[in-house]
Design a protein around this nucleic acid. Structure first.
Length: 426
RNA sequence: GGAGAGGUAUCGAAGCGGUCAUAACGAGGCGGUCUUGAAAACCGUUUGACGGAAACGUCACAUGGGUUCGAAUCCCAUCCUCUCCGCCA
């Protein structure tokens, strides 16, 4: 949520920043200004009437006590009451409208984030090199099926397209990765959270997924009651709500959390044939990092998150690149995003395994997450998140980058203690 | 699922139609007196949001409605917490 005071003062600046995202929302900004002015004008009138009514209400018991007649004043207050009620419903309408409009504005990109869409993303650095194979390379779908690691057929049979089953060494590799990630984060002082997977609407609202992206998640409805929940599309949704409506004790900042959850996404209409296998599915596993910081310290946290995510990929020995996303490719709620993209040899493409973002105060405003600053005033916290990491892109990278001529896959060294073997064979 | 109790500031808690909502009382925090220092004691001070250039005003007692000239207080709905009973992994 964008600060209405900022919008009131610098509407042109906001319009320009949104344009960097390749969105033109000038008309929305203009409408907000109009609604805002109407609302304030209306509030001034109504508050004056309320002041009059409050004063009269104070007098009534005194006049009564003195034995005076209050019927006239009461009748007058009744009239004013009707006017106030009308005015208030008008204000509420304007306020609701303004909120709707404000919610439809994305976060503003940081000044150093370049304008434009995906094609303007800038690679920041590369790690390792593209592996070369002296034999005919297999893709991860073949490798995983041949080695009995992933069962795509039965996954689709029991749950539909976009669902797969880990089995045998596939499950063991998945589990090893998750444990490896979690242990690294615990060693770095992050608190390990296992949150509920079904969340209330408010969580998606605070994270910035709702109302705009309401259709992209799975909803749980119950035939015997009206309560609705949704399956979290990322643990970020749960973690950025932990301190909703709280004043976090300043000495506890920064708060550093990680959570492991499956991520449930509808991915409606997004299937592409080159994204076979486990590149894009309705459920994938991810370890997510989230930090809450003071509003002048989120840049430090951002750097830490990017470096931590990078380190995991480095330790796995995978070739990747770090990209700084252009404004138009950053998520709706985010002021800046860096992606870590791992090399998938069969696709000859870099695929995202981690996305690190700074939401600044955008989510905290929606969730009313505050702390007391040195100036003794309440400030909105900053929230940041980064995957650390999503396994569904890591496994294809591992099996493809580590494949051997005989169809076996060498286990990355850091995972061997977790798996108890050096090579996955048939 | 059934029965009951409850949700008021940082915490505990009083208030149960107006004269106690900045909100009693207690604790905590901050400042001070005393002290070599600390503790104790004592004194003072401690909500946030919105509108307004300011003066000042408005709003907030879980949430949303209603009754009333006036609601923390009465009524309705919803959410949450706790206790007991039932069912269950």
């Amino acid at each position: 949520m964008i600060d209405i005071k900022y919008l009131r003062e610098k509407p042109e600046e906001i319009k320009a920043k949104i344009k960097k995202r390749e969105m033109d929302l000038d008309s929305i900004v203009d409408e907000i200004l109009v609604v805002d002015a109407q609302k304030r004008e209306q509030m001034g009138r109504i508050e004056a009437m309320k002041a009059e009514k409050n004063a009269a209400s104070k007098q009534i018991p005194q006049i009564k006590k003195a034995g005076g007649d209050v019927s006239e004043i009461m009748a007058k207050m009744k009239e004013i009451g009707v006017l106030i009620a009308d005015g208030e419903s008008a204000i509420k309408e304007l306020d609701d409208r303004q909120t709707d409009l404000l919610l439809s504005l994305p976060n503003l990109p940081d000044d150093d984030v370049c304008a434009g869409g995906k094609e303007q993303n800038e690679p920041v650095r590369y790690f390792g090199e593209k592996p070369q194979f002296s034999f005919p390379m297999k893709n991860h779908v073949e490798l995983c099926e041949d080695l009995g690691m992933i069962d795509y057929q039965r996954g689709a049979k029991i749950a539909g397209a976009g669902s797969w089953i880990y089995r045998g060494w596939g499950s063991r590799l998945e589990w090893a990765l998750l444990n490896f990630f979690i242990n690294e984060h615990i060693n770095d002082g992050f608190e390990f959270i296992l949150p509920p997977h079904m969340l209330g609407y408010q969580c998606g609202y605070v994270a910035g997924q709702f109302p705009k992206f309401r259709d992209e998640v799975y909803w749980i409805q119950n035939p015997t009651s009206n309560d609705e929940k949704f399956m979290l599309p990322t643990a970020e949704t749960a973690l950025v709500n932990l301190h909703r409506d709280e004043i976090i004790p300043t000495e506890e900042l920064p708060k550093k959390y990680i959570a492991y959850t499956p991520c449930y996404r509808r991915e409606a209409g997004s299937y592409r044939s080159e994204e076979r296998g486990m590149i894009r599915g309705h459920q994938f596993n991810k370890v997510e990092m989230v930090q809450y910081t003071e509003d002048d310290k989120s840049d430090i946290a951002f750097k830490e998150l990017v470096e931590k995510a990078e380190r995991l990929v480095q330790e796995l020995g995978l070739h990747y690149r770090l990209s700084k996303l252009a404004a138009g490719d950053c998520s709706f709620s985010m002021a800046r995003t860096y992606d870590i993209e791992v090399w998938i040899p069969s696709m000859e493409i870099y695929k995202e395994v981690s996305s690190a973002s700074n939401a600044r105060d955008y989510q905290a405003r929606r969730g009313n997450v505050r702390y007391r600053g040195e100036d003794k005033k309440l400030h909105f916290a900053h929230t940041l998140n980064a995957s650390g990491l999503a396994t569904s892109r890591v496994i294809p990278a591992i099996v493809e980058q580590y494949q051997n001529e005989d169809g076996s896959v060498t286990v990355p060294e850091v995972l061997r203690p977790y798996m108890g073997i050096d090579v996955i064979t048939k």
